[in-house]
Design a protein around this nucleic acid. Sequence first.
RNA 1: GGGGCUGUAGUUCAGCACGGUUAGAACGCCGGCCUGUCACGCCGGAGGUCGCGGGUUCAAGUCCCGUCAGCCCCGCCA
Length: 588
Amino acid sequence: MGLKRTHPCGILCTDHLGEEVILSGWVLRRRDHGGVIFIDLRDRSGVVQVVFEPKTAPEAHELAHSLKPEYVLSVRGRVRRRPEGMENPKLPTGEIEVEAHELEVLNTSKTPPFPLDEEVPVSEALRLKYRYLDLRRPGGLEPLIFRHRVAQLARQFLNEQGFLEIETPFLTKSTPEGARDYLVPSRLYPGKFYALPQSPQLFKQILMVAGVERYYQIVRCFRDEDLRADRQPEFTQLDLEMSFVDEEDVMGLMEELMVYIFRETLGVELKRPFPRITYEEALSRYGTDRPDLRFGLELVEVSDIFRGTSFKVFAQVLERGGMIKGLCAPSDFSRKELDELTAFVGEFGAKGLAWIKVREDGFQSPIVKFFSEESLQKLREIFNPKPGSTLFFVADDPSVVNEALSELRKHLAERLDLIPEKDFKFCWIVDFPLVEWDEDEGRYVAVHHPFTSPKEEDMPFLEENPERVRSRAYDLVLNGIEIGGGSIRIHRKEVQDRVFKLLKISEEEAQEKFGFLLEALEYGAPPHGGLAFGFDRLVMLMAGRNSIREVIAFPKTQRAQCLLTGAPAPVTMEQLMEVHLLPGWEEE
RNA sequence: GGGGCUGUAGUUCAGCACGGUUAGAACGCCGGCCUGUCACGCCGGAGGUCGCGGGUUCAAGUCCCGUCAGCCCCGCCA
């Protein structure tokens, strides 16, 4: 390579006037006037206009005729001010241009399968197959640069707080419960398998037993489950764990971390402390344990108001122990829109959606005739509805009511444009139940995981009334998306034994599955707890993107394929034999 | 496993409800011209397995069935 780069393209400005520079980058566009030729040269830093003139540099000018998009160049030239009136305000470097003296073509390029020079939409499948071109588009690297920055800030913050970054194994042991594992066959041990970790949970607890006291890791995790816009089979956690702490210590430090990252990247000043909402209250007011606090439309239970009503649908639901909740939307809806909303809640199991329109002269609805003036007055007091708004009600079992209205709440907020742009509303959800009854398995299962500590004051109910026991777990929710979760762990074996008993995990089973952790707990395990962020989700939300694929360099499709490499792919018979996997599966 | 949206030129799309000449547009690409453009301009040209398979029909891009792929959602994700 003859010409060695001296400057990035995107930083050149009037400070560099008269300087001789050597630039390297890709041809974004060529504007060839036969005489003068303009090349927009792009590198990671940005774009600058290079001018080839027949008089100034005949050789370079001649060669420049042959340039095409995505050719790779080095150009030697002089920075000069653009002629009066020829500035391009759309370019950061638009005040200047580079008068080319020498051109070296470092590589040619095939015509790209999609245009790289403009913001035209390109199908995601094509973008993923040619991800290297997709990323090369102007601004294409932005999400990854942003992600890098968030990662570095997190590291910096945690380093200063005395955390050690420690790696944990990827080839580890399958632990049942939780998501489906990705399995790796063992060559040395026929019939045995490693599993890729769903999270470093057990290792980080053991690091606490090892005396690390403060651990973190930005670490890949693997779960073989179906994909979503915010779920990839391999994703990244910012994982951390601390010794000698309670939940307030962890939550407080994590708030500081968020404040720091948001300030340094987005210039957003987050207010501390973040609201703490109990699980029960979140369900009551928002119908979900991950509420979006950027808008109102809160849910209110109105069962008592309608008790004894002659409206059959409500009465029957109440009789069989169901509930009625409602919300007030600040908008009027047409008959057709109301039908659409009814169909919408139907997707979540609601058998109907009752509505009352609020008019200047009172309520209007087909069902309002069933309600006493006293009931209607109470509705007015609760919702304080302005004329022109609409009350919605769902009557059903609590789980259906909450899910349907929670989804309706989000749906209406989007539809009515009630969500402020660039708004970041955090909250902690606390006081989760320790366990919930699993109908299919016929036993209690852990809401978080089996190592989550119960609250001290609820310990007496562990055996008699387990559903009443709250855990020392906490979830961090941002704009209605769970971005982190953690807990204070059980560090004493007798408590762990009682929880296993409650979860109907036998001693033999516990020994087989988590024996190494249980044994570790017996050697002076300190009280400890921690948290894991869904790092991709956090970055996605901060970057204002709709999918974590946008903030991952090489994401997989919804069917879990990598369109770039073609993974997953067949392997040879020899490879299968080596890991003792006999073919036969083709038969199916 | 289930529901929905999408699939037509290299790209982004129109055409499909009501089947009927040779399937269009823009950008890109190829050739030519052009000394101040910046989505340069002008002239000319090439480019199609209408995702794939089957069916209905005299005739299918268009209707029907199946299938594949991408995306969104439910289930699933302690």
